[in-house]
Nucleic acid binder design. Structure first.
Lengths: 232, 232
DNA sequence: GATCAAATTTGCGTTGACGCAAACTTTGCA
DNA sequence: TGCAAAGTTTGCGTCAACGCAAATTTGATC
């Protein structure tokens, strides 16, 4: 990828968007490129945090392993999303493992270099804080859901959140444009594969969703799903 | 409070600690002071985010109301903790309501002023990012707990987390130095007041804890509590 | 120091979701 | 083209935790 197309990608990312064009071009020049095949791991939870990444295209699943061998899915990340910065700023190991769910390309900067870029360009630091703030609010919202709502509502809210982040409007409804397994949904909502499967089966039966077996999910009646996610 | 004692307080806070003394003194001079009586609210969830706050002394409970009238406790905040910044950086309303659980003093800066301080002092911005990163990791850890562990383990982990943040070592064990109700613990762990009460009763019976009725909790056998929080 | 409101404890019946198990589909690979 | 592996569906018995209810204790207030 040449500097010009990198610059163009960064100009459209939430992280660099509308910042000083010279900063964007400099950042684009300095970035390292990295490509991942499906199932590849960008880095391992527990590794020393050395780089900041921005997703160029593709999609990753951010997994966190628990001490007793379970796994939860923190979130999915797509084009424009910022990865690794939380750990780098803390000077702590990466707290989770990003796994590519399809072929994916990223740009990266070393911790030291990004530090300089931010110190010389405060708006970039402000932008990073805004993105971290967004992550905090999302996590607080999910904590609230899982702490107070029953499973069906949580599954509905989770599907809607993913659709909001990555969904594509199609003729029939909103499509989630990557393979999202029942297991993934279970690990995002704090329930089991079985309960997710039962719930989705009922919704598909009802004509609310499409996506039996491993084809991509399509939300046929988003409004109805919102109702379920808000039902008293 | 005069500038000198403010400066001394800020010098010891995690947010300003070890930064340029001139920056600390300038920040101390410019800060507004705010005092809250027990039960007072600093601002309301949904209010426009206008200020950054640092807790000087005292303690606050950060509450988040759900759309359907329930409530969860996001965390407790004590001396040195940073409050409000997440919302200010996002340009969104405050996502939660901080309530003083005892008499509390804070210093505050307007969003615009703090923005300038950070732009002129990049290390301050880096520090803010580190603190936000810490919040993200704590939230991810709690999400993992609530998603994968049963109630008893979550209650143990929550008490240990609070003890780590605010506990005081005493002759008998580790004391949580403020009134932490059964309801508070329930709203932090995603369970009910009744289940928390039953669980703590059993632990008190067992000699693990002290704190029947509303006296402060004292952890008599921290190691045993860690075991419970880690039990397979 | 009497009264009242709030917090806590405890009992008991109910149930949402889990856990195990087995069958079935689809995909990928040989 | 057929086979193995992975993902999904569904049935069924069980139980951890909830929800309701009532008693008890404590702290606050005047």
């Amino acid at each position: 990828m040449d500097t010009q197309s990198r610059t163009s990608v960064l100009s459209r990312s939430p992280f660099f968007r509308e910042l000083d064009p010279r900063l964007i071009e400099l950042s684009a020049q300095e970035a390292q490129e990295r490509k991942l095949a499906k199932q590849d791991v960008l880095f391992q939870q527990g590794d020393e945090a050395t780089h900041h990444y921005v997703v160029v295209w593709g999609r990753l699943r951010l997994d966190q392993a628990t001490p007793d061998g379970k796994n939860i899915v923190l979130r999915f990340m797509g084009p424009g999303d910022l990865l690794g910065s939380v750990a780098v700023f803390r000077g702590m190991p990466y707290p989770a493992t990003p796994v590519a769910v399809e072929e994916t390309a990223l740009l990266s900067w070393s911790a030291a270099r990004m530090m300089v870029l931010m110190q010389e360009n405060p708006p970039l630091a402000m932008r990073a804080m805004g993105m971290m703030g967004g992550r905090i609010e999302e996590l607080q919202a999910r904590l609230q859901e899982i702490a107070t709502q029953q499973v069906e509502r949580r599954i509905a809210a989770t599907i809607l959140r993913i659709a909001g982040q990555s969904g594509r409007r199609t003729a029939e409804g909103v499509e989630i444009p990557f393979a999202l397994s029942r297991q993934d949904l279970a690990e995002m909502t704090g329930t089991t594969l079985h309960t997710v499967s039962r719930t989705l089966s009922a919704w598909i039966e009802e004509g609310l969703l499409e996506g039996r077996r491993s084809s991509h999910l399509v939300i046929l009646r988003p409004h109805r799903l919102v109702e379920i996610s808000e039902q008293a």
